[in-house]
Design a protein around this nucleic acid. Sequence first.
DNA 1: GTCTATATCATGATAGAC
DNA 2: GTCTATCATGATATAGAC
Lengths: 204, 204
Amino acid sequence: MEIKKDSTEDKILEAAKIVFVTKGMEGARMQEIADEAGINKALLHYYFRTKERLFEAIFSEIFKFAFPKLSRIILSDAGIVTKIEHFVDAYIDILIQHPFIPGFVLKELNRDPSGLFKLVVKLGLDPQPVFTYIQEAMDRGEIIQMNPKHLALNVVSMCIFPFAARPILSFLVFKDDKDALEAFYAERAEVIKKFVINAIVIKN
Amino acid sequence: MEIKKDSTEDKILEAAKIVFVTKGMEGARMQEIADEAGINKALLHYYFRTKERLFEAIFSEIFKFAFPKLSRIILSDAGIVTKIEHFVDAYIDILIQHPFIPGFVLKELNRDPSGLFKLVVKLGLDPQPVFTYIQEAMDRGEIIQMNPKHLALNVVSMCIFPFAARPILSFLVFKDDKDALEAFYAERAEVIKKFVINAIVIKN
DNA sequence: GTCTATATCATGATAGAC
DNA sequence: GTCTATCATGATATAGAC
């Protein structure tokens, strides 16, 4: 006897997440999602009218997952160095748990950015206060002077890119040694924090 | 009178590059490439037997474009700091001229890495000597001690990621102000160089 | 709500005339 | 070499039975 622990809709969402994340919007096949969910292809259209809508549901879910955690850190009242450290820790932690997200987001971003833009507007995401905050910390002499946008981008780049480029990193640098790659990712947070602090802390 | 300056094959290659780069392998349509080249769809199959082969031709061309320039710098006999500076300058220069490459490469990388792997093997690309070189410079006390792989990845991340994430950067940070975005990219090389040097040069 | 069967359409690829 | 016409396939979407 089989216990029905998930609704059909949940099963579809879970299956779609797996397929979309590995194959992307274009590569994903409705048949494959149906198979993965153990249901019929027509049911996908019953629950989510089109492939596009199903995709958007998954995309939003993934994006919304990371947002609140990072937002909380950014809005905290810690000093800028501590805040950057917490941000890097949290970001790398999320990425280690979901290493597929960067590749997926960048892929879809270059395919059709409008979906992400709608989401960004809907979430009321605006980085300007972050830049203003960084500038103020610089003016207070907490860190060296530089364009806040460049600083923020440097930090985010070093966090995200290694995961977005995972296949080439794995193959080229680690000769497909999964354990070595995982160990390397586990070191990233500490490395980035030290690197950034060295770069921006004022030297006497 | 129309002067035939390009062969049909060249026209196809140029058209395919435009379409593949913007749409990717999956998104690209043979019809669109044919239209872009001003020829018939059947001719594509006459010159390049399949879509896959046409794609590979473009992908190789793009990848091979950047390789020799960067390779020359890496193999030069400058000191490590100078070498990093030259590398960043050259890399950002290439990316400003071809800002689509990172998004394209990452997209195809996450779709099917095997093509890039074959290319990497064919070109005999091996980063190990670079890591060894960095380690030796560290041992000579030219820069601080850290895992050479992390250092290399930090530099490459800060160079590539801003271009890979161009759509979101453009929309979220620069409110679709193209001029502001271009100006920002133009500053990247100087910013990255200063940032890296601050991070790795030994303080007294 | 779930399924079978099918309509409709788009695309990569090919055949064959010129 | 280039074109028109067409095929074969696979995918989205819908109609309608249960």
